[in-house]
Structures are given as C-alpha cells and as structure tokens.
C-alpha cells in the first residue's frame, strides 16, 4: 500500500480484518489499526521483559548448583532466556519501538512482566519446579501464540516454544531425580511445589469473567483461548506428571470429573494475585531494583561502545 493508494480508511480496516479472519499473517509493512499495534507492542515487550526478569530467580542458583551437570544445564537454560528476550525485543522493534526505549519502560515500572517472577526461588528444588510448572504454564500460554496473527511474533514464538518445552522436561527430570533421592530431597520438592502451584495457576490471568481485554485480543487473532481454557489444560496436563513424581498438588478440591472429562480444581487466592500484579508481591521490589542496577551499571559500557563505533565510522569515511 502506498501514498497514492486512494482507498478509504474503512477499506484498509476491512482488508486487515479479512486477513485475520482468513487466518493469515499481518507483516510489519502492512496497514494495521493503531490499537492493534499498541496492544502487540505492550504484549511482546511484557513477554520480553518476563524472559529477562525471569533470569533472576533461577540465575541465583547457578553458582550453587549441586552437580556440575546441573550447573551446565541451568546456565544454558538461563542463557536461552536472554536469547528469548533478544528475539522478542527484535519482534517488538518491527512495530516501531526500540529495545532501549522498552528497557527504560521496564526499569521505570511503566511496563510489566510476568508476575510469577515476583515470587522468590528458595531452594534448588525451585529450579526444577520453575522448569516443570512455570515453564509448563508458559508453554500452555505460548503455544497458541505460534499461530498469532502478527508474523514476527508468531515466528519468534515457534523457536521459543521449542526451547521452553525442552526446559520444562529438564525441570521435570531434575525433580524426578530428586524424588528418587533422599527423604530430604523429596521433602524439598514437595515444599517447593506447595509454594509454586497456586502462583502457576495465576499465570493464566484472572477468570474469564474478569478479563476485559480477552475479547478484543481474540478478535484480532492475538489470543486463541481464554484464560480459563488454558488454566484447565495446564491442570489436566500437570496432574499425571505430579503422580509420576509421587508428589501431592496442594489443592483439596482437585479431582477428576468424569462427566466433564477434566479435573475440577480450587480457586486461586485472587487477593494475593492482585497484590502481586500491583507491585506488592514478595519480590517485586527486589527484581526491579536488580534489573535497574544492572542497566545503570552498564550505561558507561554502552556509551563506550557507541563512542568507539562512531570513531570507527568517522575513520572509515575520512
């Protein structure tokens, strides 16, 4: 579409919606409604921020990993998260923002990241449980995004989902080894699951009745399933895995419902969810302060790199 294109704004909008309804992809140079662009920038940036903040809870255990093999696996995993952040910021950049700008929005708390990372990682079992439950929940949320209407985001998600599913299996494998280990290791796993189970269910967001943006995101092909559908899928996926580990999920209302062909389960504590998403979770301040400190400590380095590149460019053109 060029400036000489005489079609009306309504025609553009119709074509846009037709593309989405035909399950085709919107690409960076295509016309799109401003609200669609804004929604995507916000969502992709939050997703990128989540990868970067998500390096902290697991990263803190790299130096204490109890075997060299586990240390290598964890280091590689956290490195992958930095890589995911890079692809996602690059996907956001196709919408006309840049990484530096988005990082500023993160460190000044004007954009959010996944609230799950506002919980502390308190034992080595948490490394396994984050892989199993948190990455598992993330995958449930993210697999449908591989078919998202915005091309660059969908393509980034294909790669990310593959790596996430590998991380999830690694987390599960750590827990399996621990559950076959000493009594203290099994207790450590159970204690960790007790802490992470409910926050993992909250990762799907509020119940459908309380999720005002879902409808528009579904019409735009950014979202494919409702929060409650994804939460149900996650519970059904996790129950047999918990049985394989021999651990108990901390929900007295959890049981198979043969009529529905799905598990019934209890209600997360939505007041805790509200506290965490509004900044008063157990580790919100710590996570943000850490990210801000790293960013500020790196300012002189980034400046030096720019100054050096400018000098080289001048030397070449001179």
């Amino acid at each position: 579409m060029t400036a000489t294109d005489a079609r009306s704004p309504e025609a553009y909008a119709r074509e846009f919606q037709a593309t989405i309804d035909a399950d085709q992809r919107i690409e960076p140079r295509d016309w799109m409604p401003e609200a669609y662009r804004k929604t995507l920038i916000r969502q992709i940036a939050q997703h990128a921020h989540s990868e970067i903040i998500g390096m902290q809870p697991e990263g803190t255990w790299i130096t204490r990993a109890p075997s060299l093999r586990r240390k290598a696996i964890l280091l590689a995993k956290v490195q992958d998260e930095a890589g995911h952040g890079m692809y996602l910021y690059a996907a956001a950049e196709t919408l006309g923002v840049d990484r530096e700008e988005l990082t500023e929005l993160l460190v000044s708390a004007r954009q959010k990241y996944s609230s799950i990372f506002n919980y502390p990682a308190l034992s080595y079992a948490d490394v396994g449980v984050i892989g199993w439950l948190v990455d598992g929940a993330a995958i449930c949320n993210q697999v449908p995004l591989c078919r998202c209407s915005y091309g660059p985001y969908a393509r980034a998600m294909v790669r990310i989902c593959k790596e996430e599913s590998f991380h999830q299996r690694q987390g599960f494998e750590l827990l399996l080894a621990m559950c076959h280990g000493t009594a203290a290791q099994r207790e450590m796993v159970q204690e960790s699951v007790n802490r992470w189970w409910w926050p993992s269910l909250m990762m799907f967001g509020p119940a459908d009745g309380d999720s005002p943006n879902t409808q528009q995101s579904m019409e735009w092909g950014i979202k494919r399933h409702t929060n409650d559908e994804l939460r149900q899928r996650f519970v059904d996926m996790s129950v047999p895995q918990a049985e394989a580990l021999g651990i108990t999920l901390p929900d007295p209302d959890l049981r198979w419902n043969a009529e529905r062909g799905a598990h019934d389960f209890g209600e997360p504590d939505w007041s805790e969810f509200q506290a965490v998403i509004t900044g008063a979770g157990p580790a919100n301040a710590q996570r943000l302060a850490h990210r801000r400190r790293a960013h500020e400590n790196g300012a002189w380095v980034r400046e030096a790199a720019r100054a050096y590149a400018d000098k080289r460019a001048k030397a070449v053109s001179a």
């Binding site: 970067i52 390096m55 790299i62 490195q79 890079m86 400590n297 790196g298 300012a299 980034r302």
Partner: peptide, 13 residues
Amino acid sequence: AEWVANAPELEEE
C-alpha cells in the same frame, strides 16, 4: 556465572 542477569547488554549476557 556471577554475571548472569548483571551484564550491560543482552548480547553480553
């Protein structure tokens, strides 16, 4: 490994 989540830029991470 102490640099994880502390590097000046993602490329350096």
